[in-house]
């Protein structure tokens, strides 16, 4: 972990968020450095997904501060936030059923140079290459849909990825493949915020972990101190 302020890509402080009338984020604070993989861990309903939606501007009402490369994102439209180089892989995956596999892959517009080429993407996800002729994106298996949801945001030139529970409900072998993919993306210079419930998976890919509970960040544990803190973490996550 680097402490240099120059390396801070995203700085979230005192983030508050609401779904309609219900106040769900009560002061989220965390930061992400260039090139890091950071997880948000926490129980169901702790506010992890909401935090990602807030960063992306997809929450109706939010307050506090989200600074990305020094720019304040609170008050910006999702499409403008996307054009800053942030991309979301949503929890429900968001594969479009009226689009073919290839159309799904090619859908997000390029917002900057330096995205992965389609060849490189097929290289990372050989299954998608085999299934690229598919007529309907939603006919893919759950794992393939998840890969497609990740793959399509790699082309756009966005270098800051928000991945919401990419391993949820997937077979161990596919979870492993997604783990390799995340490691490869880190090598390529992507910065990743990962929401996870799968604690083992999180430990295998991340540099640091933020623990979210009841709409607040309650702790930060570097991955190399995970062992020492495992009892504490068990208490937080209730596992």
């Amino acid at each position: 972990m680097t402490d240099s302020a120059a390396n801070v890509l995203l700085n979230v402080s005192d983030l508050q968020g609401w779904y309609g009338e219900s106040h769900v984020l009560h002061g989220i604070d965390f930061e992400v450095h260039q090139g890091e993989v950071v997880t948000l861990l926490g129980r169901n309903g702790a506010g992890k997904t909401t935090t990602l939606l807030a960063i992306m501007g997809m929450l109706e009402k939010r307050a506090g501060s989200i600074r990305f490369q020094g720019t304040e994102l609170i008050g910006m439209q999702p499409r403008d936030i996307a054009r800053k180089g942030i991309a979301l892989c949503p929890e429900e995956r968001g594969i479009f059923s009226s689009l073919s596999v290839e159309e799904n892959l090619m859908l997000p517009p390029r917002i900057a140079d330096g995205g992965l080429s389609v060849e490189r993407i097929y290289n990372l996800f050989p299954n998608l290459y085999e299934r690229r002729g598919g007529n309907q994106g939603t006919k893919l298996s759950g794992g393939e849909q998840q890969m497609l949801a990740i793959a399509r945001i790699l082309r756009t030139g966005a270098k800051f990825l928000l991945l919401d529970e990419p391993t949820e409900g997937l077979a161990p072998v596919i979870v492993q493949q997604i783990g390799h993919t995340i490691a490869a993306l880190k090598e390529e210079g992507f910065t990743i915020v990962l929401v996870e419930q799968n604690f083992r998976f999180a430990a295998s890919v991340a540099d640091r972990h933020y623990v979210v509970d009841q709409g607040k960040v309650v702790d930060m544990i570097p991955n190399d101190q995970l062992e020492k803190n495992s009892q504490k973490l068990h208490d937080y996550l209730g596992v």
Partner: peptide, 24 residues
């Protein structure tokens, strides 16, 4: 066409298409 793909996608889930940077 690609334009049509945006249209079909936005018909299904305009919020997500907007979050990809498209002016829905």
């Amino acid at each position: 066409t690609r334009l049509g793909a945006y249209l079909r996608a936005a018909t299904e889930n305009p919020t997500l298409v907007g979050a990809f940077g498209v002016n829905v």
